[in-house]
Nucleic acid binder design. Sequence first.
RNA 1: GGACAAUUAGCUCAGUUGGUUAGAGCGCACGAUUCACAUUCGUGAGGUCACAAGUUCGAGUCUUGUAUUGUCCACCA
Length: 747
Amino acid sequence: MLDKQYQAKDHEAKIYKMWLDHDCFSPDSEISQNLNKKSKKANESFSIIMPPPNANDPLHVGHAMFVTLEDIMIRFARMQGKDTVWIPGTDHAGIETQFVFEKKLKKEGKSRFNFDRETLFKMIWDYVSENSAVAVDQIKQLGASADWSRYKFTLDKDIVETVTETFIKMNQDGLVYRANRLVNFCPKCGTAFSNLEVDHKEQDTSLYYIKYGPFTLATTRPETKFGDTGLAVHPDDKRYQKYIGQEIEVEGLNGNFKLKVIADDFVDPKFGTGVVKITPYHDFNDFAAWQRHKDELPEPIQIVDFEGRLTATAGKYAGLKIAIAREQVIKDLEEKGLLVKIDKNYHNNLSVCYRCGNPIEPLPLPQFYIKVKSLTNSVIKKIDQGEIKVFGAGHDKILRHWLETLEDWNISRQIVWGIRLPIWYEIDKNLDAQITFIDQEKNRVSGKLADLLKENSIEEIRAGLQNISARIEANYLISQENPGERYLQETDTFDTWFSSSQWPFVTLINNKPGDFERFYPTNTMETAYDILMFWVMRMLMMGIYKTGQTPFKNIYLHGLIRDAKGLKMSKSKGNVVNPMEISEKYGTDALRMALVIRSSAGLDKSVGDADFKAGRNLSNKLWNASRFILITREENQVNQPINCAHDQVFKEKLKQITKDVTKNLESFQLGVAADTLYNEFWHWFCDQCIEESKKGLINQDLMLDGLKTFLKLLHPFIPFVTEAIWQELAKENLVEDKILTSSAWPE
RNA sequence: GGACAAUUAGCUCAGUUGGUUAGAGCGCACGAUUCACAUUCGUGAGGUCACAAGUUCGAGUCUUGUAUUGUCCACCA
């Protein structure tokens, strides 16, 4: 006899263990093979590569969403008898993780500067190892029917090798180059970012009007004036015609200097005074202008360093942090009578680091870039050929827009937690490289390689190495292996997205023999729309580049999970839902149902306590309907009418529901499928049919069949309670298949 | 400035080839109950489907425009 209430807690862990014990999630196990044998779809492969969560972080509700949706797809495909695999993994999450680790170091009174890069890497490795079981255990708790024997981590040796091989191949194909351009540099995090990783924040600031010789010009960044190498006006601006091409004398804070006036139509004559100072190394527009007028203008000057301080060129302001330097400069300009006025109500957008929120500095840095044009074109072609379907409320158009406008991809990051670039500098040819290392006395030493070698051996430098900045003209070798004793490896690591963009094929190439041929291209990529361009777009580019095929046929994008009122979840608002707490309190099935029911691809979804309760109630309802059917069988087994009045109608309706749900699932209408099942089960099967069966209008065996059908149809959505009930039926010998997870989908 | 969405019951949201009386959860009102389930059951109230025009025998659904909200991108120093 079943309990009156279904207690999720008493069943879930046991059931998950049973699935694992029977190897239900592996496509190679006996139980899976048996299921395939019975199916007409055994030749179809169905694979999903799990978006690897950050190995270091506990799961949030967004993870619960992807686990739910992907598990539904996988369980459905598996029950259909397809050759099904879901490959799980975790991500080293370069910047995220190093940022968290550095915060921890700071609490201990240390920083990344105290350690050589190898020691620091090892410390982070150990830290991540300690925590990485948490994410995996939580994914399991959410019922994920992933094949854990195929689990991968982005820093696994074989993965790293394949990722760097791809880079080497790209280099051979002429897709890699090194360039000295402005990058988005975060002085706080100590690394450059791609354009995609920069946030923009509206701010109120001041616009300063400053005297520049015969001109007055407006700027928000007076502290960069020491890096000015020219002035620009609009070519048609009548006010300034006579100055174009002239050199003018400017009174400055560090003495007088000369600037050439150029004409360029990027200048808006209506903004400020229509005169712009050109500071190529600290402003993207100015850099572009300098490149257009290279022959007219002198070499740019770097006035801000990588720690956010003014350089020696700034004279008495050298070493000051930007904000302080700005105040000082303004004060001094005012004293000298060079400050004309300040517009204090100026409003603009400031670029900030998406990670730490501090201002991003445009700074010149030699970095490795990937030419993207041929890659994006190949993706567009595949889309045009209809090889990729996007489910997600207009995001296909956004994807296309990105593919058409994407700029070359800066893949160098100045952090240690990642895959080191397979770039090698020959020592004797790069004696002018700038090196920072920890010497044997634990002192941090910086300087030119040639100078450092006078006091230290190359082994000492290599062992304590923190950073190499080779000149843009530097010779380098690209090689998987260390080319020899007289080489130093580049200290930059790959952008995390460079490795994760290869995830679909690296996880298959470096897995069980034959997996790549068997499961690639994967069927569906399911992830949140907010990483469409970071990840999905790049997976398409890299997948097609490396394999000639799209890495997946379908892209299902889910939205943000919001709170009950539709507000974004955030720690500061205190409205963050911890999926694990919900799972403990109401059951994993309740959580899953609340997330998926009536959800729509590409649209945000709000959930709250009421939704979780509704989910829990469904589990209980299912449990009790089963309880009723089992009880009445025991009590009434001998004496049941064979043909009842509503039998035929019942069968037809059941068939229709099966057909509808199957169709919904096949067309990625997961939210509709869940809604249909919820309503038909509760309001038709329970409220109507069970009541009618009590009156003898529906045959009891038929009711059992109906229950079994609903258990199967509901199983992908709420796997635990359906399996728990199935096991009760199995005890009574009422089912053929021992395990619901590995049973066939109804027709 | 550009693009993409959304707008349906008090709240949060479904409604995919246009087709009877537009649905769910929660909330609300009234009632029931030792009979599988109070994590229950029954009955009910509540909607000019943002607005306007158009296509059509027929529009929540298609077209155009407007408004509001949101997201993404770009950005003038």
